[in-house]
Simulated assay, not measured.
Amino acid sequence: MTRPTVSHTMSCAMQAVIWQPFTEDRGSEPALLVQCDATGLLMITQEGRDILIQPETLPELIKQLRRLTQ
């Protein structure tokens, strides 16, 4: 059964689950939970580990992620 890459858990809580697909090179990695906390910080969670990101740094983070994957 295939699942969508992104699924929204509870729209009122501003959360989304990003499923990472199985690939021949890398295998399977756990899903990412992306949400916004009460202070407005973006939080990415994977297997109990959290990364907090200020919304102001998001454009630069996206830019660097794109650069690193090219």
Rank of each mutant, 00 (worst) to 15 (best):
D25W: 00
R26L: 15
M1C: 06
I62T: 11
E60D: 14
Q64M: 10
C36S: 09
I62C: 11
T23K: 02
F22D: 13
L61F: 15
R26H: 12
A38L: 13
M43Q: 01
I44V: 15
Q20G: 08
F22Y: 12
E29T: 09
Q46R: 07
T45A: 05
R66M: 14
E47H: 10
Q46G: 02
E60M: 08
S11I: 11
G40D: 05
L32K: 01
L42P: 00
I51G: 01
R66T: 12
Q70T: 14
S28V: 15
L41I: 00
E24D: 12
P30L: 04
R67M: 07
W19Q: 15
L33G: 00
L41Q: 06
Q46T: 04
R66Q: 15
S7T: 15
M14W: 12
I44R: 01
T69C: 10
V34H: 00
G40M: 03
V6D: 05
A16M: 07
C36K: 04
D50H: 14
P55G: 04
L41P: 00
A13H: 09
M14E: 13
I53T: 10
D25P: 05
M1N: 04
V34W: 02
S11D: 08
A13V: 11
A13G: 02
A13N: 06
D37I: 05
L41S: 04
M10F: 15
T69V: 03
E29N: 12
R67H: 09
V17Q: 05
G40E: 04
D50T: 06
R3W: 13
F22S: 08
E24C: 10
P4H: 00
S7H: 02
Q20V: 06
S7V: 13
V6S: 03
M10I: 13
T5N: 10
P30V: 06
V6E: 07
P30F: 01
L61M: 15
L61P: 01
L58G: 05
P30H: 04
A13I: 08
L61G: 11
Q20E: 11
R66N: 14
Q20S: 09
R49C: 07
M10P: 00
L32V: 03
L52V: 02
E29A: 07
T45F: 01
C12E: 10
T39I: 09
L42F: 01
P30A: 06
M43I: 12
Q35R: 15
R66K: 14
T69H: 01
T69M: 06
Q54W: 11
